[in-house]
Design a protein around this nucleic acid. Structure first.
Lengths: 200, 200
DNA sequence: ACGGTAATTGACCGATCGGTCAGCTCCTGC
DNA sequence: GCAGGAGCTGACCGATCGGTCAATTACCGT
């Protein structure tokens, strides 16, 4: 009789495994993550992992694919929406929210996008990142201009995503909302070129 | 009789192996680099690798240790030299030169500093990077201020070091000198706070 | 009560991993 | 001429890798 009172709390094994795999991939890397470790971490056997996911590569696809979808969607909206200062500001906000909401996945395909070349899902991620850089950076921009974009995107991503490694432990406890605001302000400062700042 | 006319051109096997290992570690990652691959890439056998270097970890130490030494030295000079705007400008220049001259090693210990935790040489690198962030960033800085530093350092590092993955192939051919100038100007813009810019 | 399917597991496979060891070829000092 | 060390290598070791497979369990509609 209860529509869904007893069913919803149960977590699906495939979801638990996918989450455990994502954490392993992000923290120790795809190559160094064994199916055995992932299974142990999730409380299943290695065979169960391979029952739910056809291969280690399929597990990576399931772990980071959705985040790449969101990035592609974000990128598509931006390309379609023009490059006015207002549109860029909106994009920066959405991009920071994307980073905050997909830290582990972004960490995985940004940090390992080079070493894992050849895997289809990684190629998709690299293509999206490349498109991101191309679309936000005018083709005729000077080298300094391009460098500014590169530093902003890479810096924001790396700071958020790998900050756990290098920042003070104190800073770890900053609320995401504060980090979000600070990051948006720094990115705006770097990326909004419509405010009359010349090449340099 | 010739003092060193015939000897110097010969390259030492240990150097060839160290260089091949560095390239493998930077491009496919430490975990995914096998001693066999490194040996093949350098034109030796796996046994030869283990003759010159006691272990895979010792090979990593030999490959990136010297670069970490230089980073520590750079950091020590900066700490001892005060934090005037002029000193910061000099530091930025030296830091960019360090990045340009140690791309592969920096790529290795920045990108894998988290996943390879526990290896002594990696701990040393992480400590140096942490010291870099602490020393260039005032303790009482606002979150936005700290974020600016984080974005600058991480962005500069990642842009230079992993840029090959995401930047246009066209940009690959920019001369190092041009990249150096552009990067120094962007970093100066972000890091030099003595020019009267307030927190935001 | 029963047939079927989804879920889970341990046993097992070939390949490859980092590392050890004995032996081989040189070159050099005596 | 020869002892000896440096450089280099193939054979080999136990461990672990990703992946296959058959068997077991639990739950389902009929």
């Amino acid at each position: 009789m209860p529509t869904d009172a007893s069913v919803p709390p149960r977590v699906r094994a495939s979801d638990e495994l996918r989450q455990a795999a994502l954490e392993q991939f992000a923290t120790v890397g795809f190559a160094a993550s064994s199916l055995q470790q992932i299974a142990d971490h999730a409380g299943y056997s290695k065979s169960s992992v391979l029952y739910h996911y056809a291969s280690k590569e399929a597990l990576l696809e399931a772990a980071i694919g959705p985040s790449i979808d969101r990035l592609e969607s974000l990128l598509g909206d931006f390309v379609a929406g023009g490059r006015s200062a207002a549109a860029q500001a909106v994009f920066i906000e959405r991009f920071v929210d994307f980073l905050l909401g997909n830290r582990l996945a972004v960490h995985t395909f940004v940090n390992q996008g080079q070493s894992l070349r050849g895997l289809p899902v990684i190629e998709r991620a690299n293509t999206a990142i490349r498109g991101l850089a191309d679309s936000i950076c005018a083709d005729d921009a000077s080298l300094a201009e391009q460098m500014r974009f590169g530093v902003a995107l890479a810096g924001a991503t790396y700071t958020l995503v790998a900050g756990a490694t290098f920042l003070d432990d104190d800073e770890q406890q900053f609320a995401d909302a504060d980090v979000r605001d600070a990051l948006i302000s720094v990115l705006s400062e770097l990326l909004l070129t419509a405010d009359g700042r010349p090449t340099r």
